[in-house]
Design a binder for these strands. Structure first.
Lengths: 174, 174
DNA sequence: CCGAGATGGTTTAGGTTTCAAACATCCGGG
DNA sequence: CCCGGATGTTTGAAACCTAAACCATCTCGG
């Protein structure tokens, strides 16, 4: 399992990781590493720009997006946690910071005294509108290397990959 | 009893986020959200399995992979940082834990007393071999929904996307 | 009414991550 | 030789993230 690594390459990233796996599933591995590198590249740039342009972070932005999308009724913490696919304890902290910044309001639910409901303040709504517009431009810019047809094909293939992964995760407790 | 990993959640995920953006670059946005969802789905499952099967984490695994690939000469902390595309301060902490666990050796460089060199211990090499084999199987399993042709096409498109993003990042300090 | 379990949230402990600032060391010019 | 800048690493603060333990409340059966 330790092939003498034919050393070389100066500019290396995660993709070069396993240039020569010995046996079977080398192709899948390379595909995965490329997908990961691509997603991390874009995500990192988005995080960087959110920080530089708005002094915020991706989790904050995502939470605001969920509330914007949910409308004036707002969401409970648990609902936000499910939609963002993160742990509930995580949402507690992010929401606390957004409330402290005045972008999100939190009020108690009279019907269920356990649940707190989050919603955007007017300022939060305004701020998210700014951020969201910039975010959309950034993504378009970062994906500008793809033609329309490329985008469609990629979208379709990723859908298939996502479905396969989801069934592999949910279906088989290997 | 906190709900199991926030994966199941039949209802909504990041993709549903912006079902109806008003204006221009909706298509790119949807593509990006799908890519992100797909990568996060797989990455999360890999993290989960690394934790359950080996009691380790993805960054630790990645660092071992870099050292394995680098061969017996090892790498400096800075070189590892560049290859993993993470900050140097980050590598300090991860390496410290791996050294404490006995999987990685750290020795001073007589030629440059600033730089520390990391390399795998025999135990580290053995342990990584186990983890790496399992990891390769997992990836193959998680991507099993794709035919060989799908994989090739996806690989090509992601390469194009990655190149475009890279040039958009490096080229224009917008 | 009352207790058991389910559900919503918070807290705690451990890791990961980044940035910025400090520190250590090397290298080159004067 | 010595000073300044470049380079390698560490440290500290703040945020994020999870899992697990815990608390508060709700719901439902008896």
């Amino acid at each position: 399992m330790s092939p003498p690594p034919p050393d070389g390459a100066a500019a290396v990233d995660a993709e070069t990781l396993l240039a020569d796996a010995p046996a079977g599933h080398k192709r899948e591995l390379r595909l995965w590493l490329r997908m990961l590198a691509c997603a991390n590249l874009i995500e990192g740039e988005v995080r960087r720009r959110l920080r530089l342009s708005f002094g915020t972070t991706l989790p904050r932005f995502d939470l605001l997006a969920q509330l914007e999308r949910a409308g004036p009724a707002g969401l409970t913490l648990g609902e936000v946690s499910r939609r963002m696919m993160v742990s509930n304890g995580n949402v507690t902290g992010i929401a606390a910071r957004l409330v402290a910044e005045g972008l999100v309001a939190r009020r108690a639910n009279p019907a269920d005294r356990r649940a707190g409901t989050l919603s955007l303040t007017p300022r939060g709504r305004r701020e998210f509108a700014r951020q969201s517009a910039a975010h959309e431009e950034w993504i378009a810019e970062l994906l500008a290397g793809l033609t329309s047809a490329d985008q469609a094909a990629l979208h379709r293939l990723l859908g298939r990959a996502k479905g396969g992964a989801r069934s592999a995760i949910g279906g088989e407790p290997a």
